[in-house]
Design a protein around this nucleic acid. Structure first.
Lengths: 221, 221
DNA sequence: GTAGAACCGGAAAAGCTGTTCCACTTCGTT
DNA sequence: AACGAAGTGGAACAGCTTTTCCGGTTCTAC
């Protein structure tokens, strides 16, 4: 979590040195808190983690959207980059599979990112623009795999996006095993044809807690 | 939504006539409100729909769990029944597919049911007992399909449960098209082998709103 | 070094939601 | 019909989260 020491926002005069430092602390804290609790996390929690007063957070980012935009523009960019990289994989199927595995884990590790990627625009203009770059990237990935004849032709980039959003919400960051299992299952449904099931990774503890699907406790304090 | 005029709960003396009537109204209202908003719906909303005061709801059902138990015991029973029925289908694959389609729609139509089925116990004892009957039923369904050689052998009843929970959370009651699409996709991953993809139902409006995955606005008022 | 603007912290105010409580009403009984 | 017990409604209360605000502090410019 390196401090984002990017200068002040849009037009205003430069921030005072201490204010700039605090801004960085707040952004780092928000990244962390949003990742763990989602975009609805309280400002007081962010302030606590940043080690500043609540008032400071409110002055620098009068509304939640400002904070979200400042943070997730680059995070979404990372997703786009990964999609493009996947689309460029010489093995189209491996590219697709990698993207699904990585994407679901990325969203599970960062609830805020998952929410930003799912919510259609809702205020965050800069984020929306960045996210619009994602669709063509995934589309390229999909078409690449379809031209190679491995991915069924009747699915589109939206299907892939939804699937990633869906499985990305399974379990916490630590249940990658579960997610990978479902991704594998789904890939077996996405492939054009197959003679035998792809081996599934056995899940660690599969007791009766299918509650781990979606249970989203807000870890407070 | 027929009024549940079942007599008073466990041991107490019979309720007064008007109280019994109100109890029915509250249960009907709660069923409706829990279905639309989930188990976290406010008691005031239930009271409003029932046309009684909040105090009345609190008197009859001092805590949320009482209301939940009174309502969902029979609803879960319906799910168990459907699973058993599916397991008895002469065509095991059709049985499985039917259960997945029906189960996902049932959970989408009733958020409360979805939550009750997912949450491991958490207080609701009678509900937990009922839900414990579900696991063997699904297991039978799974094994039936596996013995017939159509369902891949490396999945269990928990996988099926999780998948139903997962896809049941896609979209609102009206987006059955989306859910069916995903179920079909997933079934193509669950089948032992196939030469060609099962045709997907084209989704109605697949604009950029992949937000419909999971967006759970609490419809207030 | 000093003046003054920018900035800070956190206590207080404002909202929200869930729960209790009691003056009043309704019902069943005699 | 009239009495007491049971039941009711909704205002008041309590706990929690979000937002504002201001006395005091820190930085920069001169």
């Amino acid at each position: 979590m390196s401090s984002v020491t990017q200068a002040n926002g849009e037009g205003g005069r430069p921030l005072r040195r201490d204010a700039e430092r605090n801004r960085g602390l707040i952004l780092d804290a928000a990244r962390q808190v949003f990742a763990a609790q989602g975009l609805d996390a309280g400002f007081d929690e962010i302030a606590r983690v940043a080690g500043v007063g609540v008032g400071t957070v409110y002055r620098r980012f009068p509304e939640r959207g400002d904070l979200v935009e400042a943070l997730f523009e680059q995070e979404i960019d990372a997703v786009v980059a990964r999609a493009e990289q996947a689309a460029a994989d010489p093995d189209p199927w491996r590219g697709l599979a990698d993207f699904l595995h990585w994407g679901t884990d990325a969203q599970a590790a960062d609830r805020g990112l998952a929410q930003v990627l799912a919510s259609a625009g809702r205020g965050h203009e800069r984020v929306a623009r960045e996210r619009d770059r994602l669709r063509p990237a995934v589309q390229a990935l999909v078409e690449h795999a379809q031209r190679a004849g491995v991915l069924r032709p009747d699915v589109g980039e939206l299907d892939v996006g939804m699937v990633v959003a869906l499985i990305g919400r399974v379990g916490g960051p630590e249940r990658a095993d579960l997610r990978h299992r479902f991704v594998t299952l789904l890939l077996d449904g996405l492939v054009v044809r197959r003679d035998t099931p792809t081996p599934l990774t056995p899940v660690q503890t599969s007791e009766d807690d299918l509650a781990c699907v979606f249970e989203q406790p807000r870890p407070r304090r």
